[in-house]
């Protein structure tokens, strides 16, 4: 499942170099050179943990899914905020909170991190803890306590994306 060290190192260095380009937002050769040297050095310090897949992350299918995922996710963040606004502003405060359990099929740690973060930022849910394939979710308006139904309703949509992007 995990890629070789060289692939991991090159992937980390490329990501860090892109980060450097965005930070400096110039294309002077001095900046480019400094970026290459620094990202090579920093990548040497953290490449073994940064990624599991190495260069495999750059496959076109993954990138396409990632690009589709961004608007879906941002729209959900906006919906989550409107939801918060509704619950906070209405005088009766329509909340029915509780902690439910859901299951996930994802295997890799990074995919689980993406799923948990997506769940936290989308309407009414907050990831409380995660243990193997069990996620504990604080839900502001509990609609179902059944594990299967809750899994589909809270994480189903993101899980399909995460499976392609990170697994």
């Amino acid at each position: 499942m995990t890629a070789g060290n060289v692939s991991k190192y090159v992937y980390t260095a490329i990501i860090l170099f892109l980060l450097w380009i965005v930070l400096t937002s110039t294309f002077f050769w001095e900046e480019i050179l400094a970026g290459l040297v620094l990202s090579a050095m920093v990548a040497a310090m953290g490449y073994s943990l940064f990624t599991d897949k190495g260069l495999g992350n750059f496959s076109p299918k993954r990138l396409a899914y990632f690009l589709v995922y961004i608007p879906v996710f941002l729209w959900d963040v906006i919906k989550a905020n409107l939801d918060v606004a509704y619950r906070v502003l209405s005088p009766k405060m329509p909340i029915k909170p509780g902690i439910v359990e859901i299951h996930t099929d994802l295997k890799s740690d990074i995919a689980k991190l993406g799923l948990a973060n997506s769940i936290t930022l989308t309407p009414g849910t907050l990831t409380l803890d995660i243990d193997d394939d069990r996620l504990f979710i604080h839900w502001i308006y509990v609609r179902t306590t059944d594990i299967k139904e809750a899994s589909e309703e809270i994480g189903g949509k993101f899980e399909r994306y995460m499976k392609v992007i990170f697994e």
């Binding site: 400094a34 943990l49 948990a116 995660i130």
Partner: peptide
């Protein structure tokens, strides 16, 4: 620490180092 924090630190650690380097190089 939970898996989320551990994985987050794995990803963010090199980026934070690079950002610190950016600050002192410039």
């Amino acid at each position: 620490a939970s898996l989320i924090v551990r994985t987050g630190s794995r990803i963010l650690f090199p980026m934070m180092l690079l950002f610190g380097a950016y600050i002192f190089v410039h």
